[in-house]
Amino acid sequence: MSDPRHWQTALYRFLTEPEYAARFRRDPAAAAREEGVSEARARWLAALDPRRVEAFARSAAHKENLRQTQ
């Protein structure tokens, strides 16, 4: 059983805090224990292509810009 709040916090921080992301990439098993997410999900984060993370950030910036300028 997993608490969605833990996973959503982990993904949010992974996408927005480089140091937090680096901790998952260095040792996903330890990060999983510390953050209350499953090891499988921690390993998915650890293996997530940085180019996808960057694309997410660019897309988010694009959407934010649209909202601010409308």
């Binding site: 997993s2 969605p4 959503q8 921080r13 999900r41 997410f56 897309s59 988010a60 959407k63």
Partner: peptide, 24 residues
């Protein structure tokens, strides 16, 4: 999607994917 940190105190500007598990 989800957009908020688990505590609801901060938000992403983009849609984040949801794992399809019973809790979610």
């Amino acid at each position: 999607c989800f957009r908020s940190r688990g505590d609801g105190a901060a938000r992403l500007w983009h849609f984040a994917p949801l794992p399809c598990d019973p809790e979610t």
